[in-house]
């Protein structure tokens, strides 16, 4: 009965489209600015359409050299983000599973230590972590950044996973145990797939944080060849003059991969969640 397309649904559809147009307005500014040449971007109103739209900015930005090489920035961002998210999923899901299946004081303490970790002020840890990474020879490397982000976001990851893991039924695990499956294969074959909606949430949330992180990337990657996109954007922000057309071009480029990932993943995660709930 809810699947019929009634006049009320049409009204809802129209209202939603209008709301979406309002939500999209800032993107209009983003795109319009990226299509203007440098002089026009300075002189014209930000709302005005470009007089002669040009893709030159994309060419300029993509052909940058050395530290301004957006393609290598894109690669660095992808490597660091994917690496961190994979580590978080692997170690976070299993830790949350342990916590959910071994309640009691120890499990409770471990859980609380993760939750409090979400809140601790990382600003205070910057200098100690910087020194530690340098001593280990990992400063300015992809691996160093992946370790940093894994540690930084592990508490959030475990928090997200634990909520889901606690709600998972144990019937399948019990059945598999009776059939003689090992602990690790129970986790890999049965539990982890059931956790897929949480994996989706973790991947999107932590992926976004790492992908867009400016502050840590700046401090920990300054002077290295591993600069990520959010820091690279700043090579177009000057003391007195900012090339907004180029800045926004880089912003658009850095949006594309993560939006594509979301597009690819959204149905899966939502379905996955439904599957998880229905058992």
């Amino acid at each position: 009965m809810f699947n019929r397309y009634t006049p009320a649904t049409l009204v809802r559809e129209v209202v939603l489209v209008l709301v979406t147009v309002v939500i999209l307005f800032p993107f209009y500014l983003l795109v319009v600015m990226a299509l203007k040449d440098t002089k026009e971007s300075v002189v014209s109103s930000p709302v005005a359409l470009p007089s002669s739209p040009t893709l030159e900015n994309f060419a300029t930005v993509l052909s940058g050299e050395g530290r301004n090489n957006v393609l290598s920035g894109l690669m660095n961002s992808v490597i660091i983000t994917v690496g961190s998210v994979v580590m978080l999923i692997v170690f976070g899901s299993i830790a949350a599973y342990v916590i959910s299946r071994r309640p009691g004081r120890l499990g409770g303490a471990a859980y609380v230590s993760f939750v409090v970790g979400i809140i601790l002020p990382f600003q205070l840890a910057i200098i100690p972590v910087y020194v530690a990474l340098r001593v280990l020879g990992l400063l300015g490397t992809h691996i160093g950044m992946i370790i940093l982000y894994t540690g930084l976001l592990m508490p959030l990851t475990v928090f997200l996973y634990t909520g889901f893991a606690r709600a998972l039924p144990r019937d399948y695990e019990e059945a598999a145990a009776i059939d003689g499956a090992s602990k690790i294969s129970i986790f890999l074959r049965i539990v982890f797939p059931l956790l897929s909606p949480a994996t989706g949430t973790v991947a999107i949330l932590t992926g976004l944080i790492v992908w867009n992180d400016f502050f840590n990337a700046l401090i920990f990657l300054s002077g290295s060849k591993s600069t990520t996109l959010p820091v690279m954007v700043y090579s177009f922000v000057g003391e007195n003059v900012t090339a907004w057309n180029l800045v926004f071009t880089v912003v658009i480029i850095s949006m594309i991969p993560i939006l594509a990932f979301y597009l690819f993943a959204q149905k899966k995660f939502i379905q996955g969640f439904a599957g998880g709930m229905k058992g």
């Binding site: 170690f91 230590s113 475990v158």
Partner: peptide, 10 residues
């Protein structure tokens, strides 16, 4: 990893 990065360093 989270104790090192969060608790010790903080």
């Amino acid at each position: 990893v989270s104790i090192l990065v969060h608790y010790v360093a903080v």
